[in-house]
Amino acid sequence: MQKLLNNRHFLGLLFMLPAGVLLLVFLTYPLGLGTWLGFTDAKLGREGVWVGFDNFIYLIGDGVAQLSLFNTLFYTAFASVAKFVLGLWLALLLNRNLPFKSFFRAVVLLPFIVPTALSAIAFWWLYDAQFSVISWTLTRMGLITQYIDFLGDPWNARFSAVAANIWRGVPFVAICLLAGLQTISPSLYEAAALDGATPWQRFRWVTLPLLTPIIAVVMTFSVLFTFTDFQLIYVLTRGGPLNATHLMATLSFQRAISGGSLGEGAALATLMIPFLLAAILFSYFGLQRRAWQQGGKD
């Protein structure tokens, strides 16, 4: 026993065991179970039998599922890009020597701190067809005559949901990027300034390359969070109007839990995995290439 405990390899394994068990029980098992359910016709309250790719074949031909895929891609792409641009801009602003710097940095985090279910309700009121304060203000200003149908028109509803998501997601991106910005040594900027670099050149050749690893990580998370968003849509529209805002996550819940088709819902959730993997692989292999970070060309 003593000998075994003195063995580096054995000891290493032993120390890793708790973490390994945690991962296995709380990560691998549920994921495996979910994937397996997708290949069965399980219903809520009834165990299913193996049906192979039946669920997937049906979902690929299902108009609502197709629409939810489109909505999810649209939602993710649009919101992620906007969150990145706004987040980076905000981070650059906050990185300057502003008066009340800490105060502003704290305030910026607010949308991220408020529970999504609560902020979603606030947006639900903002977007209400009858009580929207936005419509009310615009009407009072004489800019519009009829209240805007934020959540009743398919495209309005999509953009409204995206806007709410951006509002909630920007602080996360901004604060993470701000942390990245603070690690960049001021001497690099001084050197660049001495060389006569314009602000744009300093950003392009100093800030951006050094920030890329952080951007990669932050954007990976941002894309994953957006792609799997649920609460916001569920509170705002429940996937309506006419399923125009149904994301794969909300549709999966509707089919599996409310509708009882556990297998089909699980299959729909499983269908999200390839997209999520692609997002991760892109960020790791695309954005974290060392050569590029160090100013080299591909």
């Binding site: 067809a129 009829q146 934020f150 009743g152 509803a157 109007p241 006419l242």
Partner: peptide, 9 residues
């Protein structure tokens, strides 16, 4: 109908 019923919960 009043406008906006498509969004009504």
């Amino acid at each position: 109908f009043v406008p906006g019923t498509l969004s009504w919960l």
